[in-house]
Nucleic acid binder design. Structure first.
Lengths: 337, 337
DNA sequence: TTCGCCCGTCGAAGCGCTTCGACGTAACTC
DNA sequence: GAGTTACGTCGAAGCGCTTCGACGGGCGAA
């Protein structure tokens, strides 16, 4: 039916093993032979059978990616990350199998134990994630996006969210602001101890304390209505507030809107810094001073780490991508008075 | 190393083939034997090797899903659909391999020809999609989400977007509206002839004509700024306008906002119907009369169709999910005068 | 009672590839 | 010039599973 390696071998006048070596490069093959083999491959349209390859080599060249679908996570960020993982994986000659969070530990165990995948990427890690023990004992390497309470024996990578939170506050402090607020992720994100949200909070609080600022924190549901309500309450309860850090992609526009309604000009009356993807920060009515969430880079690096582990190379347990703040039009010196 | 079928067989005191048949049910196995085999499997923690299985059975039990990442598509809808596909696939004992649009035809050919996947699901189909010839000749079954110019020899499924467009206009007509506008997808979506956008447009126009209404059409970029601009222009150019159909999830809230700014109360002054996921329609400041985009059902049905094709059963070339309009608070009788 | 049939099980032959050891040849070393 | 070493290639042995044909025993039909 379909052309197999023996067909190529016959056509090229060599043995199947030679074809295999020509393809993998695991043994030296003369230039002429290689050329002949490659010509035959092209001519016959040969494609190695993935299953046969996986069986013989005990490598499937497939990665599992666990994507979150829980409330409170911002879908475009996840999607951007997923696409980046797939693209990076392809660059390393791997494919990506999609596993839903819903499948839980059993799902991870299944794809790992059946040798469907060689390695795993897990997103949306919680502080005490139930999957951690499993990942530690699994015989396949894995990389986590996000940090659990202890990264011992694991490989974790994430943006340095703590630094991101600090950076925002430092920036506001540098502009003379004294009273700042954090508009955070939806409450459920904190409740289930998703680490990135907590780390932002820590950074925010620590920096505010360090600068001797008054600070306040408000989780916020990912709906326009919630945004309006939070904006209003924030100003009512903290009339002296002049700086806001927003860590909630979904409500950025509604917030800008709400502040505008409340008669505040940005940045003249109120400075705003955001933690969000670059394109979001620049596509709103006011270009936002922001710390970028680098989904693409995260995906690339996660895959790179996984490849190293598959090669048996040592990798650091923790990798924090440095946070960078880009000043834009949404922050300014604290209004006089 | 890992436990294999021969280990199970020995442990259960049967032959490997018996274990295989006990697992697949392809031949009758006595209840006692089956029980013994199952006990051994549990006890040893046996997991069949996916690659070996694929090789021997020439079935990988993996589906390829091609996800779009182009501008103008609404990410949460895609994500919801993707999750639904994965969940449904799992219910049919299949896994899902993620393929990016970017990989194009070569990517499809690759996963199909290497027998990595048994079948393909392709989203975001264009009227003259370059992948169509390939899909027609591929030896693996596929299902398209969306309709190309001709579905001959293919299997396509989608919401009946034409009916959805009509339904919205019919609803407005029934409420006495005479001048209606369509706020559509971003221009690039129309330019590349993504069929669902065009079909909404056709339905909208046809129904408006049928009702003798004055109608106008405005594509709209997926940014709040664009939404504001479109809202303004719409009212300026069509002062008599009282009904709007929005087919652009990303700008629903900004539009509501803009209309409000322009002094219009919804639905007292302006009626709005939307084509969007149910949860979006109900989570805005005004619950929107809408035709739901049933991502979940689409995913389920797409997978169901694929399974039928894998079983060799005949399936219809075209499947249109019926559109349903749910009246909510955003539409009302045309204001007098 | 005997033949044929079906049920439940086994053995063996692959599925298409990778990889290991072996082998001949050519290029070195000293 | 004998002994290595490296290169380029081949043959064969699996990888772990499915599946096909075969086979013995129990049963109903004749």
């Amino acid at each position: 039916m379909t052309v197999k390696i023996t067909d190529v071998a016959r056509h090229a006048g060599v043995s199947p093993s030679t074809v295999s070596y020509a393809l993998s490069g695991k043994r030296p093959i003369s230039a002429e032979t290689r050329a002949r083999v490659e010509a035959s491959i092209r001519e016959l349209g040969y494609r190695p059978h993935a299953g046969a390859r996986a069986l013989a080599s005990s490598k499937s060249n497939v990665l599992a990616m666990v994507v979150p679908l829980r409330a409170g996570i911002h879908v475009p960020v996840v999607m951007g990350f997923a696409v980046s993982v797939v693209t990076s994986a392809r660059a390393h000659d791997h494919d990506v199998l999609l596993v839903t969070q819903e499948e839980g530990e059993e799902g991870l165990r299944r794809v790992a134990d059946t040798a469907l995948v060689d390695a795993l990427i897990v997103m949306d890690v919680q502080l005490h994630d139930p999957r951690l023990p499993l990942l530690r004992t699994l015989d396949r390497p894995s990389v986590l996006i996000g940090f659990p309470a202890s990264s011992d024996g694991l490989t974790c990578i994430d943006l340095d969210f703590r630094a991101a939170g600090e950076l925002c506050v430092d920036h506001l402090a540098g502009l003379g602001h004294r009273v700042v607020g954090l508009i955070g992720s939806p409450p459920e994100v904190y409740v289930r101890q998703t680490s990135f949200a907590q780390r932002v909070l820590q950074g925010f609080t620590a920096a505010a304390t360090r600068h001797g600022m008054t600070s306040t924190v408000h989780p916020c549901e990912a709906t326009p209505a919630a945004a309006r309500e939070v904006a209003e309450r924030l100003l009512r309860e903290h009339p002296a507030l002049t700086g806001v850090v927003v860590h909630n992609e979904a409500v950025l526009d509604p917030l800008l809107d709400a502040f505008e309604h409340l008669g505040l000009r940005i940045p003249a009356d109120l400075s705003i810094t955001a933690l969000c993807p670059e394109d979001l920060a620049t596509s709103l009515r006011v270009p936002l001073t922001s710390v970028a969430i680098p989904s693409t880079e995260l995906g690339e690096q996660a895959v790179a780490l996984l490849m190293k582990k598959l090669d048996g190379a040592p990798v650091p347990e923790a990798t924090l991508l440095p946070a960078h703040l880009t000043p834009r039009a949404s922050t300014a010196r604290r209004p006089a008075g």
